[in-house]
């Protein structure tokens, strides 16, 4: 747990790029999923007629939205996995 090797490391360009990209990505993705997720309880609380509206046969808007949240979760996880390849590459350069 020594702190000696760090000052030079923080000046390397790959690391600066990693921190900037990663922070921007994390913040954007987190805010996006929180807003999209909270659509569900907010609409369930304040717009019950919309949630009970049938859109596909007997399947209501509420169920469509809930299933869409699952797809959103998987898609965002996939986007992150793809993006993380860049992060891994930058991390490797930063360590070198």
């Amino acid at each position: 747990m020594t702190v000696s090797r760090v000052p030079s490391a923080t000046r390397n360009a790959a690391y600066q790029q990693l921190v900037a990209q990663r922070n921007a990505f994390t913040l954007t993705m987190t805010l996006t999923f929180l807003v999209l997720y909270f659509l569900l309880p907010v609409l369930a609380g304040y717009n019950k007629p919309l949630m009970a509206q049938k859109v596909l046969g007997n399947v209501t808007f509420g169920y469509v939205l809930a299933f869409a949240e699952f797809i959103m979760g998987w898609v965002m996880a996939y986007i992150y996995v793809v993006k993380a390849r860049t992060f891994d590459r930058l991390a490797q350069e930063a360590r070198a």
Binding site: K48, M51, A52
Partner: peptide, 15 residues
Amino acid sequence: FLGAGVKYKNPIDLI
């Protein structure tokens, strides 16, 4: 039963 509100009556509690 196909829509919201059977169990959670209070939106703030749900959020």
